[in-house]
Amino acid sequence: MLIITNNQKVMDEADPRFERYFVEGKYEEVLLAVRDRIHKGHRLLTHPLSGSVKPGQTPYKSILISKEATELHLESLQIIEDSIRVYSTQTKNQAGYREEIQTAAAEDFREVDARLFAGALESAMRAAKPMSEYKEEAKL
């Protein structure tokens, strides 16, 4: 399983069993990095819109995908594309002001993202391998 994140706290603190890739950029760039991998056949394992802190409010985002790339997984593609659409709706007209808040509350935003994500990683570690890799997998 592979973590895609722009949150240094997740890079530093996530369980060592997970591989990780750091995105030097904003929330949106994490979504795009995940979308690119889904195009290549990786599967989404956590929801990209984790947390009720809206895009445009928090600058941090961490997403778990499968390490292996197989064929294109349409459900994963649907969810990431929907998430990018929501990101774009919610960030419209919010430029400028948010960056001030994001800097002032950066540590809190990192912590919330990291804690929600850690909960998902705990769920992920309960099975022998990611649920998406089981052959009898239920459809999303």
Binding site: L44, L45, T46, H47, S50, L64, L116, F117, G119, A120, S123, A124, A127, P130, M131, S132, A138, L140
Partner: peptide
């Protein structure tokens, strides 16, 4: 309403 997609599958099932 969990973050891990397989949790969502299990709960909605």
């Amino acid at each position: 309403e969990n973050v891990y997609l397989a949790d969502k599958e299990r709960s909605s099932d």
